[in-house]
Design a binder for these strands. Structure first.
Lengths: 393, 393
DNA sequence: TCGTTAATTGGAAGCGGTTCCATGACGAAG
DNA sequence: CTTCGTCATGGAACCGCTTCCAATTAACGA
């Protein structure tokens, strides 16, 4: 029974006294097989422990039932949620999903080039990655269906959000609360230079921010706009600069929740209370945002992955996908990091007091033998705001 | 030149006046091809835009150059880091990586069953998933190499940490700081029941916690041990129970950083200061931990993925992998959420005061028209601890 | 110049399925 | 009792590449 090499469809056919065609029909649940025959073949398959070769079937059929997802910065929460969304529908549709983590443009190109050969995958989902017309042309020439998520690709179905509207939303909210000096902390997006910044999500959100200010009759202050590499740590550094200004902002809009975390950390480290002295609004609404009470612009991350996968599978079924550009809704989520600013005078004096707090606390830590906190931390600042409020009331 | 169907190796052979064997040799960089021939073939390949079929090659060669990663709860930071680690080395080795997000045991079994057929993938990495002997046997029978990461699988190379030692490490640290009443917040791990809890990471960490207490001559108090489903929100609820006890713990060990976030949120919401009134130690050391200053037990997450992938690729090269069980190092990272407890009497009175703080703050919020914070939030508590310290000094 | 060995090369035989077409068998209609 | 149309079935052809073996050619030493 247990031969050295695996059973093939021919073995099954021989053992059950039918032709390979019939076995194939049984396997694929095709019609036109007599019940008695089907049962017999099934029994033999079971006996022999036969498992059809995915590969051979794919080669013969001309389709793999597998799709590729090319996604940058896999470790970012937003990327993961998108991927998870796509994975869930692709798995449900019976597709294997090959994941390419394209952290650098070089790797992105490398992966894309590999995928240019048909039958490597049935289709491609490109996430958050601008793609050159040249690359795109190569992929299309290969006849591989493509959809994009979180990035606009001309001539290809793409699921995106309106970043400009998002920036507008966040900034308008802060303006509505009464803020006038609103800082902006954004990232350059990948290896972009500042010159191409206008084409990144962060860049478009900045445009929205500017629009909102303009609509409110406010002149955008260049010194309040800070850009740096992505990441909480960098956002923390940028925020430190902002809060160190002679006339610091009373609110900051960060272009991602992760960066907003950095903003909060910087505020904490500098003894600036949130939302008392500084309002913060993020972007994305990752799981963490709800937990720490971060006000933010919610974008449907997982949903974007789901939509992308759905559209790709529609494409693979040969259906037309319309409209090419699908724009998902944004929603402002107001939590506890944004509030009305204090009256101007009081605010700046309050800031001074808070600064001194740090030194005092340091002394206390040492005296008490608790050891000093090392890195920027929220935790060490627990409850401070409320305590402060109580003290003042 | 542009025919309707794609160019095949035969087309290239014909167009360059050589045999298919030679073309194959050129493609695969084999030796024994005259330079002149190689150049000629290469030129034709380029002209025809020929791309070898991965599928056909795989079928013929009998190997896919692709591996499967089965991972549960892909959205958890720890899972993502492991996956990213594996992805990086697999990509470097030229493997395609198919990701299966096995959120439920049903799906896990389903995926595993699918992978049981050889030539679906060359190898499998199983992450954080206990696997039955039955399943394992099926996979081995299929002759597919397997390695495990973050889970012990008998007879298979696995990369793990010593969870018990980790629990010990965290608890000993809290004991060393002078804590006596140490709470434990853990999860049940997947769909496990309490009866199988002893076999989960959280369960083993609990064992370490118990060992540490025992070694310190302390009787573990059952009411201080709380288990619930995974997640920050659940941990928050459990912590609320703990802090509501007549004699609440002065420290809590949470079995993941995510859960520790929930602990912090609960403390914040209840007006319990960290680390003043409550020390918190997490587990994992995800990126966020550093940002918020969470004390934690660091486990090399990404590294575990890297090791798993390396071992699998060694296996695929036909090398022996020894030792089967690879245990990665743990390290306690002391940040700002853990400190010495206050003297007993003062601590409990301090707790009372803090409780009142909440009510006072609530009143203040309303009066000020700032709106009340809604969900558990760190942010609303910014700087409180230091302010409190200052007030006392 | 002539063996002999080594380097190249051509091409048939798989790899393990899917598909299409030809062949029977069988019941219904004429 | 033919004549069809239908349903089941067997099996050759093919998917596009790797590989092995035989054949051809080049290289080398005597």
């Amino acid at each position: 029974m247990r031969t050295s090499r695996r059973a093939t469809i021919a073995d099954v056919a021989a053992a059950s006294g039918v032709g390979v065609g019939t076995v194939s029909r049984v396997i694929n649940g095709a019609v036109n097989v007599r019940d008695a025959t089907r049962v017999r073949v099934l029994r033999v398959i079971d006996q022999l422990g036969y498992r059809p070769s995915h590969l051979a079937a794919a080669l013969s059929r001309g389709t793999q039932r597998s799709v590729a997802v090319v996604v940058p910065h896999l470790t970012r929460p937003s990327a993961v949620e998108r991927l998870a969304g796509a994975l869930s529908v692709l798995a449900a549709e019976g597709y294997d999903t090959v994941v390419y983590n394209a952290d650098s443009p070089t790797r992105r190109d490398h992966f894309l080039a590999a995928l240019t050969s048909k039958d490597r995958t049935d289709g491609i989902i490109i996430m958050s990655l601008p793609i050159s017309q040249h690359q795109l042309a190569a992929v299309r020439r290969a006849g591989v269906p493509v959809v994009a998520v979180d990035v606009t690709v001309r001539g290809v179905p793409h699921t995106v959000i309106d970043d400009t509207a998002g920036g507008l939303l966040a900034t308008e909210q802060l303006l509505a609360l009464g803020h006038q000096r609103i800082g902006f902390v954004g990232d350059l997006g990948g290896r972009m230079t500042k010159s191409t910044f206008g084409f990144t999500a962060s860049g478009r959100r900045l445009a929205g921010y500017r629009q909102a200010l303009a609509a409110a009759g406010l002149a955008p202050c260049q010194s309040l706009i800070r850009l740096g590499p992505y990441g909480a740590a960098n956002a923390e550094a940028l925020t430190t600069e902002l809060l160190g200004l002679p006339d610091p902002p009373t609110a900051i809009f960060a272009t991602s929740d992760t960066q907003a975390m950095g903003v909060l950390a910087a505020a904490d480290r500098m003894g600036v209370r949130v939302p008392g002295e500084l309002s913060v609004v993020g972007f994305d609404d990752i799981e963490l945002a709800a937990l720490i009470g971060l006000s933010t612009v919610r974008q449907p991350l997982e949903q974007s992955g789901v939509e992308g996968a759905r559209r790709l599978s529609a494409l693979l079924r040969g259906e037309k996908v319309r409209p090419l550009r699908q724009v998902l809704d944004l929603q402002l989520v107001q939590r506890n990091t944004s509030a009305q600013p204090r009256p101007t005078g009081q605010a700046s004096s309050g800031r001074g007091v808070a600064r001194e707090t740090v030194a005092a606390a340091e002394r206390h830590y040492r005296a008490d033998g608790w050891g000093m906190p090392r890195t920027g931390c929220l935790a060490s600042g627990y409850r401070a705001d409320r305590a402060e409020l109580r003290r003042q009331s």
